[in-house]
């Protein structure tokens, strides 16, 4: 069953510059999707629309068949989706445990330990962690939120090759083992190769690519 559906979505900056020209797509639980495309083609905008950070100029974004504009964008962000950003976007005055606890009612430490952080690291200030560790905290925060859709914007963009591979594996596991719908916006073909479905956004249109491409 489709958990998210994009129906003929159009988006224009300031009502003039059209970046999305009638995009359609369906996304299922338990799968990882990658969206590729050149800079400025509207990848992050599309991700924002999926996450309810903005509204399309026309068209609909459906979550489990319901238009998120009607059910409420703030509610959609709070209950259905979780974001992972390239720059991690952790709250700098909180520890990893506290960052995860922002959205989770579950004990954060087991989730962090599962993602490779020690108990001591989980109590440090987040700025004292490495980039890879910070991104793990961001992923832990997304997973702990119990959201069914994880939206990741260049999640490995700031990481070295090995760490990027580890993070990719974690995201893939989140889809395949935890049953999440993971949507990744990326420039990285390496990361895209790991996705179950790869979309290419070009000239405002979204097309499914052969994953072998």
């Amino acid at each position: 069953m489709n958990i998210m559906e994009i129906q003929n979505v159009q988006y224009a900056y300031d009502g003039k510059k059209k970046v999305l020209k009638g995009v359609n797509a369906q996304m299922e639980q338990g799968r990882m999707y990658a969206i590729l495309g050149p800079s400025g083609c509207g990848k992050t905008t599309l991700l924002s629309l999926l996450g309810g950070l903005d509204s399309p100029t026309s068209g609909q974004i459906l979550y489990q068949g319901e238009d998120i504009a009607k059910t409420g964008l703030a509610d959609h962000r709070r209950s259905h989706v979780a974001f992972i950003f390239q720059s991690y976007n952790l709250i700098d005055y909180l520890t990893p445990i506290e960052n995860v606890a922002l959205t989770s009612k579950l004990p954060p430490l087991p989730i962090l330990e599962q993602l490779g952080l020690t108990a001591e690291e989980a109590k440090r200030n987040v700025l004292k962690l490495s980039g890879g560790q910070q991104q793990r905290v961001a992923i832990a925060r997304a997973l702990a939120s119990d959201a069914q859709v994880i939206l990741a914007d260049e999640p490995t963009g700031n990481l070295d090759e090995d760490t990027a591979a580890e993070i990719t594996a974690i995201l893939k596991d989140s889809a395949h083992k935890s049953g999440k719908c993971v949507v990744i916006v990326t420039h990285s073909n390496e990361l895209a190769k790991e996705a179950d479905v790869v979309f290419r956004l070009r000239k405002g249109d979204l097309q499914i690519l052969d994953t072998s491409e």
């Binding site: 996450g51 950070l53 703030a74 509610d75 959609h76 962000r77 709070r78 209950s79 979780a82 974001f83 976007n89 952790l90 709250i91 700098d92 922002l102 959205t103 925060r141 939120s145």
Partner: peptide
């Protein structure tokens, strides 16, 4: 602003 954006992205009103 960064912190505000993160909170809003997490669905905090």
């Amino acid at each position: 602003v960064h912190e505000t954006g993160v909170y809003l992205a997490m669905g905090i009103s």
